[in-house]
Design a protein around this nucleic acid. Structure first.
Lengths: 217, 217
DNA sequence: TCAGATATGTTAAAATTTTAACAAATTGGA
DNA sequence: TCCAATTTGTTAAAATTTTAACATATCTGA
């Protein structure tokens, strides 16, 4: 991924974990934490944690550590969790429905405004408090509702085309569950959840482990 | 992740992509491909592709390139796609149901043998051709059916405990959709799908991009 | 108030990952 | 048959990421 920022993706992908663990600490009324303790909890090295946090500023205090509440809030801000985002789901199949009903989604500031499908059997279905709309209406819907994020839960085939449509409508981010790598121009953010690749990785690791265990014997 | 193999996770995570793109080529009756062409398609550098493939053996031929069919098959074998795996799903909520109905899952050799939940309202539900069983029965079920992979679609709270149970029953791999990092001893493979972290990453990137665009103006 | 303990921010080193370079092998057309 | 073009496998360099080291600041208990 080509980006302008000097923060590496490796760091970015650790931020949500920090946020989650700090939330846990907060939940347990722990007010103060050192990088060493965070290391014990998260499994990252203390050095890495300090270095990561320092990308965004000195949140800690020498001799004391980090204030849990403050750090949790700061990372939340860095992650943009203070904002809310308007979203739609394309594809009202199993995955689309699961995301629609995923409570964490709205808890994190992502508000679902609409669901779309091209299958006449699904159009008109009620999912949560929404009615599935025909895909033809997606362009006008995005424009009139200022939708920022599109969630693609479509089968492989139509996905590239619909993604292009979304980008043309000015969508800013795409959460892609379809097993394709989208080729899109412009400044759109793409975040893939490639379940098939995740599965294949398990398959590989299981096979690898079996072979290593075999050799050890 | 600590592993015995000298193949890095970075390489492993690219293998499913190679496999997918080679499948596409095969589907289009393309018999031969160079690392340069693969680079164009996949977005990885030709150098990286050659280096990755060479971790597993010399599949290509100088002056010719790679035979698509052969390479596709070889990578499939490396990924262990020739095998089948017996799986169960824990948690018959939205995510659990989506996975159960995810056709790609069974196409890839993962056979779903059972679904479990602790909610009396869900126990007895029919999902696909399976009936949701009470979680108390999971131990005996795993042992008597030689289940190899457990798919955790449970809420945050109970997940660590149920994972420990699975490991004690001899499960080999866990596909974890719960927003927790499992702490497990032994040789069990853990593959996380942390949707919340994926969401937060989008949120971060959107905010970052907005700020960069603002500066440019 | 003082001194040892603690723990950050930061710089430097080590490790890993990616990219580049190129020799050697093969292809394919004249 | 021969030669230029192609393309791999492999080695070396560059870039990135992680880990270690340590000076400096703050805390805490006596």
């Amino acid at each position: 991924m080509e980006r302008f920022s000097n923060i590496s993706m490796a760091v970015v992908r650790r931020l949500p974990k920090y946020h989650r663990y700090l939330g846990d600490l907060l939940h347990n009324d722990i007010r103060r934490v050192s990088s060493q303790e965070l290391s014990r909890i998260t499994g990252f090295t203390a050095s890495q944690i300090r270095q990561d946090l320092n990308c965004f500023g000195g949140f800690g205090q020498q001799g004391y550590g980090y204030n849990v509440d403050e750090l949790h809030r700061e990372i939340g801000n860095i992650l943009g969790l203070d904002k809310t985002y308007k979203t739609i789901i394309i594809g009202a199949g199993n995955v689309g429905r699961a995301i629609a009903n995923y409570t964490f989604f709205e808890e994190s500031g992502f508000k679902l405004y609409g669901m779309f499908d091209n299958n006449p059997k699904k159009i008109g279905d009620n999912i949560k408090d929404l009615t599935v709309l025909p895909i033809d209406e997606v362009e006008s819907f995005i424009k009139s509702n200022d939708i920022e994020i599109g969630i693609l839960c479509t089968p492989k085939e139509g996905t590239q085309k619909i993604a292009e449509t979304l980008v043309n409508c000015g969508i800013k981010g795409i959460w892609n569950f379809a097993p394709v790598d989208l080729k899109l121009s412009g400044n759109v953010i793409i975040e893939n959840v490639h379940l098939s690749e995740s599965l294949f990785t398990i398959s590989y690791l299981l096979k690898e482990q079996e072979e290593t265990l075999k050799k050890k014997r």
